[in-house]
Structures are given as C-alpha cells and as structure tokens.
C-alpha cells in the first residue's frame, strides 16, 4: 500500500511537536541552538539530522484603503517521497530504495557517504551527516545516551558520514504504527494514511476552505512537473510555494542526462577526428 503525508498548513499552529517527536523516535541528535531572528523558526532547514522543519512566515501589508492584512503562515516541511525521486536515481550504491509503503528509504549500512543524493534532490531535503564535527553543531555525539553512543559512533562518525532524511517512519509503519510526527501533531495538520485517500481528503479540504473564503492550493497532490510526478508527502498551501521555501517548478535532475551525454559524445568524436588527422599527417 502506498502511504504518505498530507500536511495541511492551515491547521498548523507552529508547536513543533512534529520536530520533537521525529528527533526522539529516530534518535536524532540536537543541531545546536542558533537564534535566527526569522520569526519562530530557529530550526531553519531540513538536514541530515532534522527530518521535520516548521517554517514560520509573518505577513503584514496595508492595502490601498488603508486596511491591514496580516497572516501567520506555518508549515511543517518534510521529505516529499517523490514518485520519481532525484536522490534515489542518483544514488550509486543502491542505498536509497523504494520500500513496500512506496516511500523513499535510505539504508544507512549501504550508503557510502558519497553525497551525490544531496545535490540530486530538487527540494534540498537530504543531507550528509558529517563525520567530523569540530564545533559540535552537526552531529553532537555527546548528546546521545551512553548506550547508543557506540552504535552511532560506528555507524556515523567512523564511517565517513551517511546521508540522512525522513524514512516516513519505516520502522513504525512496519508494525502498524503511524509516523511519529503525524502521531504527535495535535491539530491533524499532519495527516498520515493511504495516499489516494489523502488526496481525496485534501481536495475536499480545498473546497471547504474556498467556501469559507480562503484561497488554497495543493502542492504535490498532482504532478509537480519537471519529470518528478506527484509527491507522497504533499501540502495544502495558502500562498505561493516559494513563500514556504518550496520550488514552484522543480526539475528532476536525470532529465538533464541525455543532453549531457550527447554533448560529451559530440566533443569526444570531434576531438578524436582532429587527433586522428594530427597523428596521421605527422
């Protein structure tokens, strides 16, 4: 069964329970504390050790009549579990697989830390958990319980780094639990379930909101274009995707391969002919 997330941003209250639940369940370490000054967002971005990230956007404007419009947008971002996933296509070790729940899953014991998935995700989701951590901001081993330290040290620090991102709580799904973030979300902004059912529910929600005078759109429920297809983690947004740091027109990297190989072949053939002439005439 294909499962996924429907993140309805109109219901998000910015409590970050999803971030905390994800970190706890997946034993992800702290990323250190930085005070960004960007509304309530001190998490800043998804990373190898941050798999849910709540974005905060405070909007204020005055219209021509002098009326004040203000909104506070909050949205919990996550790996999109793309139909055609750039990370999965790029991974040279086969560490990234599509599992029985149709989620994109990284097998940490197969990953060799090459970092190619990092530059191949059109949404900037997956990142390396670095091996060296001079200032303790990336992977703070000291913050882990003693009992887990050995395992994590072997897996991560001595390994030369591995890629990390949301697993859609593969382990929880296997035993019939819902992902930690969805479980913890107090407002059902994060809904987990069968992907077709979620899409249906999302469409109804857009209409309900329209009836109430709220303009909303779905992001990723249908094909997002660029060869990526639909997203198993899709969103309901009330502003342009870029406002939430989501690309409006993402592109699947592998669509750039044919042009690249063709150009390389053309250059190689041209130079080979030139070389043949140089050496034959000599």
């Amino acid at each position: 069964m294909a499962t996924g997330f429907f993140t309805d941003t109109t219901l998000c209250i910015g409590c970050k329970a999803c971030e905390v639940a994800c970190k706890q369940w997946n034993e992800l370490p702290s990323d250190g504390f930085t005070f960004t000054g960007n509304s309530y967002d001190n998490t800043s971005e998804l990373s190898g050790t941050t798999w849910r990230h709540v974005a905060f956007v405070e909007q204020m404007s005055v219209d021509q009549q002098g009326g004040l419009h203000d909104r506070w947008l909050m949205s919990s971002d996550v790996c999109k579990h793309c139909t055609n996933a750039g990370c999965l296509e790029a991974c040279p070790t086969g560490a990234i697989i599509r599992n029985e729940f149709d989620s994109v899953f990284i097998q940490p014991d197969v990953c060799n830390g090459c970092g190619y998935c990092v530059v191949s995700c059109p949404f900037g989701v997956v990142d390396l958990i670095e091996k060296f951590d001079p200032d303790g901001t990336h992977y703070n081993l000291a913050s882990l319980a003693e009992s887990r330290l050995d395992a994590k040290q072997t897996a991560v620090q001595q390994s030369g780094g591995v890629a990390g991102k949301c697993t859609l709580c593969y382990d929880r799904q296997k035993v019939g639990f819902e992902p930690a973030c969805a479980k913890a979300c107090p407002t059902e902004s994060i809904q987990f379930g069968d992907i077709d059912e979620l899409r249906e529910r999302a469409r109804v929600r857009v209409e309900t909101l329209a009836d109430r005078g709220v303009e909303a759109q779905l992001y990723g429920a249908d094909d997002v274009g660029g060869g990526i297809g639909s997203l198993n983690a899709f969103f309901l947004l009330t502003d342009r995707p870029e406002t939430y740091n989501l690309p409006a027109q993402p592109v699947l990297p592998s669509t750039r391969q044919p042009a690249g190989y063709a150009a390389a072949a053309a250059a190689a053939v041209g130079l080979a002919i030139a070389g043949w002439m140089i050496f034959r005439n000599a």
Binding site: D41, G115, G124, L128, R240, T243, P247
Partner: peptide
C-alpha cells in the same frame, strides 16, 4: 518571494 533568503537547495559536500 524567498524564505528569509535561506537556501532552498543543499550545497555539495
């Protein structure tokens, strides 16, 4: 618009 001008993509390592 951008999100506080923060990067949308991850830089290569």
């Amino acid at each position: 618009p951008t999100y506080y001008d923060r990067p949308m993509l991850k830089a290569p390592h």
